[in-house]
Design a protein around this nucleic acid. Structure first.
Lengths: 336, 336
DNA sequence: CTGTTAGCGCATTCAC
DNA sequence: GTGAATGCGCTAACAG
């Protein structure tokens, strides 16, 4: 039924070793024999069995990708970067959603390893000791992407989240804002939570301001929670003149909550986010935000992984990509 | 270095067949031996090699998914449905972006087949003869998802695009609109283009109206093209009282173009889209649209694929999921 | 309930 | 340049 390398060999009147050579573009095959083999392949409709090849060569040309949620626009953008570069280097990716749930992350890491992936790209909340235990059981290269890891012992690519938040708040400060509401992620979430929280705090301190707890709300990074937190801010006396959020989605929620309340953005309240998801320029007013290079995060991580897989020497395995303030229309000077 | 089933067998004092049995939860292993094997596995840190297993059993428990673009919010939602169900049935997915480009689609189909996937989930624009040629070279089950195929010979899951458009336009008609601008996808795109175009046309005809070419614009399904086409409509005399678009993204572009022009939605112009992407309820006014069950499209397609893989008898391999009109705030009766 | 024996389809020595 | 032989790690009969 299925045609194997052996059938091709017989058809072409050569040995299977020779067929293997031409299929793998090995040098040292006489042009004529090469041609005969190609013809046999063509006429039999031979398709190499990558599984058998993987077993024999111990390389599968596939990498495992664990991702929190592919339907999240931030991660799907990163995933596209990953896949494009993977494709460029002739790797395929096995994609696993893990929702930042530790047990599921560990589980998929193990099945990915069972599948003999050549490398592992991990995106998730935070790397714990259990993760490290799982990573330790293998020799395949691992790179962390948009993920925080305390001991800094793995290859990784990310942005400086604290600095990004710091820059955003400083921007607000420079526009005269002093009452800046902050919708933060959970402080257990190192990147979106704690790091950005620290950035907010430090920016305030740099300006000689004290952080006030009543101006900080914890959200879940999503649109609705941006709305909810903003409603709270709207009830404050005095009201904040600006709202900074740890994600663009929450920022968009903030904008709408303000508008639904009958106020204007940025005239009455300015709003600044982080991420620069596509949607950020698909709101009115368009969102001023700190851009993360989402596609590049994935692309660079994947490129790094290919180098690691090929045992190329790489100068720096901990790469920080730069973020960038994107000025649009949701921010203005404070009106006294 | 790597510990194999043979090492475990020796350690546990049994044969490799027995180890294989316990690893595969085969019945008929004495509890005591099972326990011994588990202990050996534990102490050696044995991890089954899925590649070897795949070669021996001719099953890889992975399915190939070809998708137009994972960073597109519509498809990433579908992909989530696919992955969740795949995971539920213990399959992994190899994800390949193909951008609806035929050559790339054919290419990834072939590499997926080389990797011996147990099944193939195809999402793309249109299935051509070249696709059918590629499909013919294999016996693995294939299901088409959100994809049009003229000869109707493959398992598939989709919605009725023509009817969805028909319903949307009828809704507009029922609200008194008679001048309905339509931003369509390319007519070469069977689903998003032609089918929805026909639905628009038929709805008009059912109401005894004639379709007028100047009220139809071709867009590329994205936000910006919604803006561009709407600017054109805004210059028409008389202006349409409503705009219907083939995708939500274009609808949101339409809303913003209208607002940027100084008009109000829906007071001056109503807007209705198709899809119900998350963003549809993250605009002001919130978008009235015809919902496609994106997650379910993926989930049902994957479930169908698992049945096909297991050679279960399935009653109907061509499934049409129902769409639903979602009434929000971008539509009102026409103000005379 | 358990062990023996063959392959699965290919890459990869090592000869020639 | 090319062929023969071996084994990658595992499943799947078949015996017993």
């Amino acid at each position: 039924m299925t045609v194997t390398i052996y059938d091709v060999a017989r058809e072409a009147g050569v040995s299977m070793a020779t067929v293997s050579r031409v299929v793998n573009n090995n040098t040292n095959v006489k042009p004529l024999t090469r041609k005969k083999v190609y013809e046999a392949i063509e006429m039999l409709g031979y398709r190499p069995n990558a599984v058998a090849r993987g077993l024999a060569s111990k390389k599968t040309t596939t990498v495992g990708v664990v991702i929190p949620d592919i339907s999240n626009t931030f991660f799907s953008e990163v995933a596209r970067g990953i896949e494009d570069i993977a494709n460029m280097y002739h790797y395929n990716i096995i994609l696993c959603n893990a929702d930042k749930r530790k047990e599921k992350e560990i589980r998929v890491i193990n099945t990915l390893l069972e599948k003999q992936v050549d490398g592992l790209l991990f995106m998730g909340g935070t790397v714990t000791d259990e993760h490290r235990d799982a990573f330790r059981t293998t020799n395949v290269p691992i790179v962390l992407c948009a993920t925080s890891e305390a001991t800094n012992t793995y290859a990784s690519v990310d942005i400086n989240h604290e600095k990004a938040a710091y820059d955003a708040v400083t921007l607000l400060l420079n526009h005269g804002h002093r009452q800046i509401g902050f919708i933060c992620g959970s402080l257990e979430d190192t990147n979106n939570g704690l790091a950005r929280y620290n950035g907010y705090k430090k920016a305030l301190e740099s300006a000689g301001l004290e952080m006030r707890e009543e101006l900080v709300r914890i959200g879940n990074l999503r649109y609705d929670s941006g709305i909810d937190a903003t409603k709270y801010f709207l009830g404050l006396e005095p009201r904040p003149t600006a709202i900074f959020t740890a994600t663009d989605e929450m920022a968009i929620g903030a904008i709408h909550a303000i508008q639904d309340f009958g106020l204007r953005v940025p005239h009455d309240i300015s709003v600044v986010g982080i991420d620069n998801i596509r949607m950020a320029s698909m709101v009115r007013p368009q969102l001023t935000t700190v851009a993360q290079p989402m596609y590049d995060l994935g692309a660079v991580a994947m490129r790094l992984l290919t180098k690691l897989i090929n045992k190329e020497t790489v100068e720096d395995t901990r790469v920080i990509l730069s973020h960038e303030v994107i000025t649009r229309n949701s921010l203005s000077h404070v009106y006294k």
